[in-house]
């Protein structure tokens, strides 16, 4: 007698992977938008207005940002709850796992463990970040963000977030590929090595990009510290005014 079929294990497994994939795509897109600051304060201003729906509705609606923030939060929560199932859940499992990792020193097992650790950190860091986004959606802009980074000392959170989220995301994508489409055939080993190389390159790229952006926000925040709280006015408007 075959046991009764339950579709849930399949659905849950898919959902965990899918939520992870969406979050990765989100965070990578997020990085590009956030790093618009590297192209100048105007660029970042345009981007933030865009997300408030200004090009569409004629005026900014910061609530849209809150909505995205809530969606992301839900995704993160779902992903975290599903992922938690796989964490060692008892001291026996925890001991077994540590003995195993200590002895075998297997790179891919270590990668997974890096995800466990970063995932755990993100558990605290992501809500902190999302809380400000959701509750103060209007406070995203070249000066508002920079002031938060510098004058409100948020750069510490963002630095930690930058590191953990990208380690988690890059490894996640590599592991997702191995999980669902591990290379096969004669070139399996070579292709896996390439996948891994791609993972490191992506990780490096986003760390560099993110660090550069963060430093830029810090610089602007530092320069703007005495006028903290003042909103940015785009250069074009300045010209019209004068």
């Amino acid at each position: 007698m075959p046991k009764a079929l339950s579709a849930w294990p399949a659905r849950i497994d898919l959902l965990q992977s899918l939520s992870g994939l969406l979050l990765v795509l989100f965070i990578w897109a997020h990085m590009f938008f956030e790093s618009s600051i590297l192209l100048g304060e105007d660029a970042m201003y345009q981007v933030s207005r865009m997300f408030e729906g200004e090009p569409l509705f004629g005026k900014p609606y910061p609530l849209l940002v809150s909505a995205v923030g809530i969606t992301v939060f839900v995704l993160v929560a779902v992903h975290a709850i599903l992922a938690l199932r796989k964490f060692p859940s008892s001291s026996r499992q925890y001991r077994q796992l540590h003995r195993h990792m200590g002895a075998i020193r297997h790179p891919d097992t270590a990668l997974w463990y890096a995800q466990v650790i970063t995932g755990f950190c993100l558990f605290f860091l992501v809500p902190t970040h999302l809380y400000t986004v959701i509750t103060q959606p209007e406070n995203i802009g070249p000066y508002a963000s920079s002031d938060r980074v510098w004058s409100e000392r948020f750069w510490i959170v963002y630095a930690l977030l930058l590191l953990t989220v990208h380690v988690h995301a890059a490894i996640g994508v590599y592991r997702l590929a191995m999980k669902w489409y591990a290379p096969s055939g004669v070139n399996a080993t070579r292709n896996r090595a390439r996948l891994k190389l791609a993972m490191w390159c992506i990780l490096g790229f986003f760390i560099v990009l993110g660090t550069a952006s963060l430093l830029t926000y810090m610089r602007i925040g530092y320069q703007h510290a005495d006028r903290a709280g003042e909103r940015y006015v785009p250069a074009a408007l300045h010209t019209e005014d004068s």
Binding site: P9, A10, D13, K86, H106, D108, T109, R175, M178, K179
Partner: peptide, 10 residues
Amino acid sequence: GVFGCMTLLG
């Protein structure tokens, strides 16, 4: 079974 696998690749 298969959904227990965490793709640790050991």
